[in-house]
Design a protein around this nucleic acid. Structure first.
Lengths: 168, 168
DNA sequence: CGCTTCCTTCAGAAATTTGTGAAGTTAAGG
DNA sequence: CCTTAACTTCACAAATTTCTGAAGGAAGCG
């Protein structure tokens, strides 16, 4: 298949794009994300269509198809991007849904739940009446509080978002 | 200095303590924390006094003083533990303030701010009117919303905490 | 069907991270 | 002051992670 300005995004200043991609990716890495997923994600975020093919990602980031494949697998497990097949082609497109990805961020719920269960076991095994047990119980209570708050907060965001961006 | 059951925590089932420490640390690692800081932190959380000396940490976790030193430096930079000197001794104690450490968790503010500024630059350089620019602007708006919400939420938590644990 | 394009998997090389031992620094206690 | 206990720093070795090239499928298209 032939490449066009539309599919590669080459019409935009590649310098500026790359600067954003590497800078934002670096911040994501700082926060604990692996380098390659971070770069791939940043590239998608900065693309005009909000989606790129594997080949485009490889070319823009100067990495092998294997690296793209691994990064994309990770990102879709985290629900930060979705994969879609281009109809009538073997190419796959990876897409970031602008509203979906940061919802996934707060969906660290899985992690929160695991923290909670580790703490809960700890309280049980060390004794709820020991100083350590009480400390852990308080921490547990905080996370349980968090669970509820995060859900309510996202609901408020959706309202706020609708007001601000809804009418496009 | 001599070691006592009080300072080493050996009166408690070391098996149970270790099981919690390694289990909880593993979850922290999963969430992006480095292994050694995670283990040190979990050990402090599970200690009855809420604090341990360098030597105690080294012995319990079977690691060198150097490893403890590095982990503790990281943890105190993150405001997850504080260091205090034992009066009349060269020993240092590392302490977890039960209420302080998870406040530090939400104090990923530093990271949030950096994300915001990276996004802001991106919007500027790619153009606020481009599709990519609009996507990045929406993400930026989300993080700005988050900033405010997190602060308000922690305030609600403090009230809730006082009601639940205040009267001890 | 077979050719071709594209994605994935896998073994291994390269780079990075992590933890150690040893030397260095600081400060208490005689 | 000198000694010594305790933490820190540093160079390096070990372990782990990350990325690549090559081989192995799957699926469109003739």
């Amino acid at each position: 298949m032939r490449e066009t300005a539309e599919t590669t995004g080459r019409d935009r200043d590649p310098e500026a794009v790359s600067k954003f991609v590497e800078g934002f990716a670096a911040q994501l890495v700082e926060a604990g994300m692996q380098r390659m997923p971070a770069r791939v994600f940043a590239a998608l975020l900065a693309s005009d269509p909000g989606s790129l093919t594997s080949a485009e990602l490889g070319e823009q980031l100067q990495v092998s198809p294997a690296a793209v494949s691994g990064a994309v697998r990770y990102l879709s497990q985290q629900h930060m991007v979705s994969r879609e097949r281009e109809p009538g082609s073997r190419r796959e497109r990876y897409r970031v849904h602008s509203d979906q990805w940061y919802e996934a961020l707060t969906n660290r719920e899985t992690i929160l739940k695991r923290w909670e269960s580790a703490l809960s076991e700890g309280v049980a095994s060390l004794g709820a009446e020991t100083p350590a047990g009480r400390r852990m119980a308080e921490t547990l209570a905080f996370f349980e509080f968090l669970d509820g708050e995060l859900a309510a907060m996202m609901e408020r965001w959706r309202v706020h978002r609708e007001k601000t961006f809804g009418h496009r």
